[in-house]
Structure formats: C-alpha cells, structure tokens
Amino acid sequence: MMKIKWPFLILAILATICIGSIGISIAEKSILGIVAAIIILCGIMGFGFTQKKKWREAGKLD
C-alpha cells in the first residue's frame, strides 16, 4: 500500500488553489491578482520540485 506524502499533497492543493485564483482574477479583470497568483504558483511549483529532488536523492521516495 502506498503511503501519502503529506507535504506534496499540501503543495498540490496550494497549487490548485493558485490555478483557481488565476481564473477568478481573470473573471474579475484584476491584472494584479493574475500576476500575483502566477508568481505564487511558480514559487509553490518550484519549491515542490526542489523538495522532490532532495527526497529522491535522500532515498525517501519509493
């Protein structure tokens, strides 16, 4: 049975929220909201990929 990697699940949920925020910002015609959501999304995704690499090198991933 596969164990849930909670940090990665939380990062995935946060990234999904950011993607939804982009859509909401588009609907509200908020350029600032769109840009902020994209920047935050890039940060979350970058952090997630960095952590995954560190976990893989440490042998923590299956």
Rank of each mutant, 00 (worst) to 15 (best):
G43V: 02
D62I: 09
F47N: 08
I19H: 09
A36Y: 11
L14P: 11
C18P: 00
E57W: 12
A36T: 01
A27N: 15
M45P: 13
K54D: 10
L41C: 04
L61D: 13
S21E: 12
I44T: 09
A15N: 01
C42A: 07
A37C: 00
I26P: 05
A58Q: 02
A37F: 06
I17W: 09
A58F: 00
A27R: 12
F47I: 08
K60I: 09
T16Q: 06
P7C: 07
G20A: 15
C18V: 07
F47E: 14
K52N: 15
I10K: 05
T16A: 07
G46T: 10
K60L: 14
I22C: 05
G48N: 11
A27G: 10
L41P: 04
K29Q: 07
G43E: 01
W6C: 12
G20F: 10
A12W: 00
L14E: 11
A36K: 07
K52T: 14
A27T: 13
M45T: 05
I13P: 00
I44Q: 04
A27D: 15
K54N: 04
I19S: 10
M1H: 05
I38S: 06
L32H: 09
I22G: 09
G20V: 05
M1V: 03
G48I: 03
K53Q: 15
S30I: 13
I4L: 13
I40A: 03
L32Q: 06
F47K: 02
M45Q: 08
I40P: 04
K54G: 06
M2E: 14
K3R: 10
K29I: 00
I19E: 11
E57M: 08
F47W: 14
G33C: 02
I13L: 10
V35N: 06
K3Q: 13
C18M: 05
I34F: 01
M45H: 01
